[in-house]
Design a protein around this nucleic acid. Structure first.
Lengths: 204, 204, 204, 204
DNA sequence: AATGAATGAGCATTCATTCAT
DNA sequence: CATGAATGAATGCTCATTCAT
């Protein structure tokens, strides 16, 4: 393990990223239970000792993988959302961008679901949930509350609807991730936008 | 392993069920990665040799666990659906019963998600998906198509809506399974019924 | 690991003893730092998995080794001491038997010194010391105090003399254990008996 | 590793000493088995590569540590002994100084005992013994033989008594090193001086 | 002189699986 | 039917050592 507090060197940073990416691909490709240091190392043509050199342990490595997945997705969503003003537009683009992202980063989602199995205790699972869901949920809830403040959206429980919409997105992505041939993701996008926009815009 | 073709004895059947149940609870409680034969055996007060005797291997055991989860849920849904005639009623009860079932059988869903990690190759994962989602999806799709035939429901792509509704259900259950304190499942039920009934009943 | 509370089977007990003995010999022969499960297993023609099956871990195994060494020696000394009545005789036989025991069980002492290195923290080392030295010291101190009560021995600080005599015994054994050719152990016995009996018998 | 034959530079010499000292403290503090290059390097704020650069290998380093311990003690004893003329005085001061040295350099003795475990083969252990015990024993034996030549001491086997006295010293130090609270080292000093001076001075 | 990236062998430990009893 | 002894492959991890920079 390199020195603790000093800023990491260029080569160090590059290796870490390389290993994290390989880990992510291995998890997505072979499942978490088959993702050993040896397997990751083999896929990179390095030794497993090198992975242990760059990461404090397996937990550290998968935490980094998780971080990467979450941060990437969050950054993508944020970059899309900033260009729109109205809550209606933001909500539409949130749905579209969420599915778009998964379509081009399927491995991320596969790995994410698999990683769930790496947390053994209920406490760890809850923490994992918070880390992963937290940012999405709050981003979405802000949009919905914005819509209610501006009067664009009707009166409904914002928290419940947030979770249902996010749930619908995740559920749809999940099925597609399980089997990409089950439907075209874009067809779902349209239907989801229609269903939920219609629902939030109802005034009575 | 008992003889291949003979019908299983009573005790044989009981043991298998006992072991499958213990496996399910262990997976839900400690996670799949912590679920060894030894762990299951300990929770039953038997030896791991006995588990190996009754099942061809670990894959065989978890396949049985999976079967149990799926069959139980399917049976529950079916028993609820038969008492209703109209597609609208059937759809409402499908949503309600799905969430009801998970609320009283949370361990099943926890185990199900965890078990996803036990499939290593993409092919296995796809097969798992077919086995698990298949029955739910076709049951739901039948209801929706029924509604369109009777004229209760409006004109929309039945397949896509089926997947979106099922996805919304799964997504909502998933979040609740991750953290039971995130919302009351019944609150979601109402909102889901309202959202989707409104959507399918639209005529234009 | 076999069942926790039930009495161990015959074969279980035999294996454990066999493994403990092999561990002791390996430690004495190659040093603790070279004593791996693999090494012990190789010397027995079994697999290292079997050692892990019979012992909870390495700590458990070396604790058993330690126990064996200490108990054996203590039992030997006790069996010798009971046949004598007077403190003078007991003291003489304590010295003689201590060296006798080491002469026929050199490996025990070699292993004992080596095992010291297996305890990393000062607390562990102190505990080790208590476990090992405690029984010897108290046995010896009882003899000396007996001698002072019966009037056989003169007036001196019994605790200090106990430690000095035990120290002399250990030091002499240590040198001989390091290099058996340095002197004949029996020559030391005579001189030690003479030196210390003379010392304790002094009345003024 | 620096060039073989050239005399070492000032900085080279300083580094080696610094590393040897750190190694000694680490061994005494955490035990030999926990003393890795990384651990020593960390305690000095340098990299383990640097240690490998200054020493041929781990064996080389611990040999240097050993040398330091032995030479320091020998130098201390010699400096004390030269100021006395008679064998009786020399013997008394040998005992006193030996215990004095350990009292102020406890870490040296702790490390010494721990280092015993770093020698794997019986041959290495014997060599270690010779290196360590040799100087002490010959110094002590010279004193005793001097006393017999001058007629101060009585007629006894000088070799055996040398070893017994040295053994007593080591044994007493060992117990105190194991647990400094077991007795005050100075109390032992007095008793040891009394016991052994009385013994060597006996004329019959 | 010194660093830090990289190696490769070795470690204790876990576990599904086999099989004689 | 059931046990428990035994295996062997795999896992995460440690560490002395090497070497280009």
């Amino acid at each position: 393990m390199p020195s603790k507090k000093e800023k990491p060197t260029f080569i160090e940073e590059a290796r870490r990223k390389q290993i994290v990416d390989a880990a992510l691909q291995t998890i997505a490709g072979q499942g978490y239970s088959q993702t050993s240091f040896a397997e990751i190392a083999k896929s990179l043509g390095i030794t497993k000792g090198l992975i242990a050199y760059h990461f404090k342990g397996k937990q550290d490595l998968i935490a980094s993988v998780l971080r990467t997945i979450i941060d990437n997705q969050a950054a993508y969503l944020r970059s899309k959302l900033v260009t729109y003003e109205s809550a209606t537009d933001k909500l539409r683009i949130y749905i579209i961008a969420s599915l778009e992202y998964i379509e081009t980063n399927r491995a991320h989602f596969v790995a994410l679901v698999d990683l769930w199995g790496s947390f053994t205790s209920p406490e760890e699972k809850r923490a994992f949930n918070k880390t992963f869901y937290g940012p999405c949920i709050s981003q979405l809830q802000e949009i919905i509350q914005l819509g209610q403040q501006t009067g664009e959206f009707g009166p409904f429980d914002p928290k419940i609807l947030t979770h249902i919409l996010q749930g619908a997105l995740d559920g749809v992505m999940l099925q597609w991730v399980f089997d990409p041939n089950v439907y075209r993701l874009t067809d779902c996008t349209d239907e989801l936008v229609e269903t939920f926009l219609h629902q939030v815009l109802r005034k009575s």
